[in-house]
Structures are given as structure tokens and as C-alpha cells.
Nucleic acid binder design. Structure first.
Lengths: 207, 207
DNA sequence: CAATGTATGTACCGTTTCGTACATTAGCGA
DNA sequence: TCGCTAATGTACGAAACGGTACATACATTG
């Protein structure tokens, strides 16, 4: 293979392809040879840059979470009324999840392994904070005005939203099989998006 | 090993242990040798009874879903008022999920593989029906009395409840790591159980 | 333009892992 | 009790798989 050298491109291409393969096959199911074959480089580079299969997976996890965090920080719902802000956060989170199925599936894989890998990645600590603080602000304003209930915190709300959104992607195969509803179909997706907004608003405004 | 022969016990012990191992390690991560070692029989029996690793996984899936369905049919919330019935269904589903983490993790594993295995198990078709019909009944009564909103169906409600419950178990590792909240701790669990009820009731009664 | 370290390619090794051939034993019916 | 079949155990093979030794080419710098 006659091609100019580009360390950064080799690295990022490996991570990109590995993200796909790990999210398609799981950690153990992913094959180092397959990942290498799908890139324009060779297996050797995986060991050169990442030390091995696990190191590559760690790098994949880190890259995925970093992308997520960057997007989360662009939520800025500070200029909306609390109720509208809540709905908007829910809907953006929803879009975000269904637009990044690889990431969600990666999280599933990591959970199968009980988070054993992510514990090793220092940069992933305290990554949850941003998402929580945005919600905390909105909840505080809503409580002050009496529009939102006071007996739940930001983590409660975030968990609920995450649960609904993650489910759309992570469990579409089994749920679709059992209930004959394809959650990836555009119309269903649009409907579920609105439903999520209704759920969160209905929940938080009921008191 | 000098022990009396018992085909049924061998079979069921293999399925029991395989359920654990597959849910702990995923499909590819599970080792047939490890499964065999954890039982009182040998690897040979996996091939004798199930034909191979995949056949064993299929049997595990089938057994797990059958157990679930049996439990679901004992919901009988027919004698409660619609709003109370909804809350009760949500709470029982919640208990059910957190009490059977192996099953939930197995479902995650199967979703990683896009439901490829469960499609091969004939007996898993039309297994979603029971859960849906119970909800349909309650929703119909609630709509008639005007207590419950009319723009959602049983599958919508079931999806929401499932999403929240599955998340408790399937994503506890990553969520706990990122937000420092251990969803398996008894007090958190009890709190989330109540919150789920609030969410569903708040949602369905808001209109 | 030489020299040096980074980056890459090739071929191979040792182990793991699924699967199987073959032997053997327990129990049931005749 | 004898034989036959279902059930079980043992040992091993072939391929897959993660990883590495070694050779080499590129590019940057002095």
C-alpha cells in the first residue's frame, strides 16, 4: 500500500472504524483483524497507537463520550420559560440519541461489562456534571415560580429522559420484534419525541 | 463423577448457568468451557442437548422470556380504578425488572446482536401481546371515565414503563459512574419506584 | 544530504476456543 | 439377567484470534 504517512488520520480512522465494530459486535465479538481490515491501515497500528484491543476500546469510549459532552453543552435553554425549557431539553436529548446510535450501543456494551473499562479512563470522571447543571438551573427557576414540582432533582429528571431516549435505540430490536413497532421509523420516531415531551412536562407540572 | 443420570436436571442446570454467564459476559464473551465448568456436567452435554453455543443461547433466551411472560400474566389489575391500576402496573413492572437483572442483561445482549437470535425462536413470536392487553383494558376504562388521556395507546405506555425499568438495571454501571447515584441501592430503588408511578400517572392524567 | 526517530507493513507464534471422535456407563424393557 | 439405547465422560483437533518480532520506508532536522 503506497500512501503518504499521516499519523493523525491513521489514529482517527482506527477509532472511527473500531467504534462501528465494537458497537455492532460487542467487545468480545469485535475482532482486531476485522477492525484493521476495514481501515486503510493494518493491525500493527492498533498495537502501535493503542497498545492492544482493550486500549483501542478505551480510546473509542473516550472519543464517544467527548463528542456527547460537546453536544450537551450546546443545549443552552436558559432563555426559555421553565416548562418550555424542559420540553426543549427532552426533545434535543431525544434527537441527539437517535442520531448517534453507535454511541448508545457502545454504552450498552460497556454496561454488559459493568463499566469495567470506563473506570480506567480518567477523563471520563465528572463527565455527567454538565447535563445535570443545565437541568438544575431550569428546575430551580421552575420551583421558584411554582410551575414545577419540588420533590425531584436534576438527576431524577435526567435519568428519566435518558431512559426513554436510550431505550429507543438500545432496545429497538427486541421491542420491535415483540410489539411490531419500529421505533426507527420516522413517523414513530416523531411521535415518540412528542410523547417524551408530554411525559416530562406532565410529570413535572403535576403537583 | 459418580452420580445418577438425570437428563432433565442436566438440561436445566446448563440453562441456568448459561443464563448467568451470557448475561455477565455477552454472547461472544461467554465461553462454553466456562459454562460447562460451572455445572456438575461437562461441555459434551451442551452439544448433546443444544447442538452448540448458539443453540444454548437460544434455549436460554426462550426460558428467560417464558419466565417473564408467566409473571406478567399475574398482573391482574382489573379490579382497581384506572389511575390506581396504572400505578400498580408500573410498580409491579419495576419490581419485576430489578428482581431479574439477568433477564434484562440478556435482552441487552440480544439487542447488541440486533435480535438476530430471537428471530429463530418460534415460541417468542407474539409474546408481547399479554402485557399490552392488560394495559389496553385499563386505558379503555380510563378513557371512558375521562380520567386518562386518549391520545396514547397501550404500546406507548408499555414502552415508557419498560424504558424506565430497563434503564435501572441495564445502565446502572455507566449512569452510576457518571452521576454518582447507585440505582441498585435500596433507598434509591424505592425512590425511583415511586417516581415511576408519579411519572406515568402525571403523564396520563394530564389533559 | 546524512542521520535518526516515527510510522508502517509482513509474517509468524502461542493460546484460546468451539467443536467432535470415540469410549463408557447407567438404567430400562424384554 | 441380558442387551440396547439414552446419557455422559475424555481426549483431542482445527481454526480463530490476540499479539509480537523483525524489516523497512518516510520525513524531519541539523
Amino acid at each position: 500500500m503506497v500512501q503518504s504517512r499521516d499519523a493523525e488520520r491513521t489514529r482517527s480512522e482506527l477509532i472511527e472504524v473500531a467504534t462501528e465494530v465494537f458497537s455492532e459486535q460487542g467487545y468480545s465479538g469485535a475482532r482486531v483483524d476485522e477492525i484493521a481490515e476495514r481501515t486503510r491501515t493494518t493491525k500493527r497500528m492498533i498495537y502501535y497507537y493503542f497498545g492492544g484491543k482493550e486500549g483501542l476500546f478505551l480510546a473509542v469510549l473516550e472519543a464517544a463520550y467527548r463528542r456527547i459532552r460537546d453536544l450537551e453543552q450546546n443545549l443552552h435553554a436558559g432563555d426559555l420559560e421553565p416548562v418550555d425549557a424542559i420540553r426543549r431539553i427532552a426533545e434535543l436529548t431525544f434527537d441527539h440519541h437517535v442520531d448517534h446510535p453507535d454511541f448508545i450501543r457502545l454504552v450498552s456494551v460497556e454496561n454488559i461489562h459493568r463499566g469495567r473499562h470506563m473506570e480506567k479512563v480518567e477523563s471520563l470522571r465528572e463527565l455527567g456534571a454538565p447535563a445535570a447543571t443545565v437541568l438544575e438551573d431550569v428546575l430551580a427557576r421552575g420551583r421558584a415560580s411554582g410551575e414545577l414540582r419540588a420533590d425531584v432533582d436534576a438527576v431524577d429528571v435526567h435519568m428519566m429522559i435518558s431512559a426513554y431516549c436510550v431505550f429507543q435505540v438500545a432496545n429497538s430490536a427486541t421491542f420491535g420484534f415483540l410489539f411490531g413497532r419500529d421505533m426507527l421509523a420516522p413517523d414513530v420516531r416523531e411521535r415518540n419525541r412528542r410523547i417524551l415531551g408530554d411525559i416530562v412536562v406532565g410529570w413535572l407540572t403535576a403537583h
